[in-house]
Write a protein that binds this DNA or RNA. Structure first.
Length: 149
DNA sequence: GCCAACGTTGGC
DNA sequence: GCCAACGTTGGC
């Protein structure tokens, strides 16, 4: 079963928000490579929930996909930060998935620590300049990260 | 198709 | 707030 990692700004949606909500829609992805990965996700697949653009960036827990990709409604909502004037109900290029809480890491695994792991050199997350917000995680990478909890 | 300009991401 | 790196846009 494929594993994934997705980034979220905790001010927008944190692992603790998801823990409280139970489920949430993962929307607002506006990068084609990330969107293509979203579209490859299937219900049941787990992902690392990464906190980005915050005082302590790192992997904050685990969640799982509960509904595979469908048209992202925020692209059609003029009031949304993620509104895309070029999207329409007939032609919406953006996708969202629904996710459910699994586990929160206390404390989270800091990015600085992930960067010291030789097993993670191939993971885009730790590569200089990489901004990919949705990425696959290899089984051995997943296992290596779990040992850091 | 090239590429400069611009906007965004995201760590620090 | 800074800025490196990247993706996108649009003129040509």
């Amino acid at each position: 079963m494929p594993y994934w990692l997705m980034k979220s700004e905790p001010a927008e949606l944190s692992i603790h928000d998801l823990q409280r909500l139970g489920e949430a829609r993962w929307d607002g992805v506006r990068n084609y490579q990330a969107r293509n990965f979203l579209r490859n996700m299937q219900a049941g697949e787990p992902f690392f929930f990464y906190h980005s653009s915050c005082p302590e960036p790192g992997i904050a827990g685990i969640a799982r996909i509960i509904r595979p990709a469908y048209p992202d409604p925020t692209a059609l909502d003029p009031d949304s930060h993620y509104f895309d004037a070029k999207a329409s109900a007939e032609k919406n290029p953006w996708s969202a998935v629904d996710v459910a809480f699994v586990e929160a890491f206390e404390p989270l695994i800091p990015l600085a620590r992930l960067k010291t792991q030789s097993a993670l050199l191939a993971l885009p997350l730790v590569q200089k300049g990489s901004r990919l917000s949705v990425m696959p995680v290899a089984a051995d990478e997943w296992a290596a990260i779990l040992t850091l909890r």
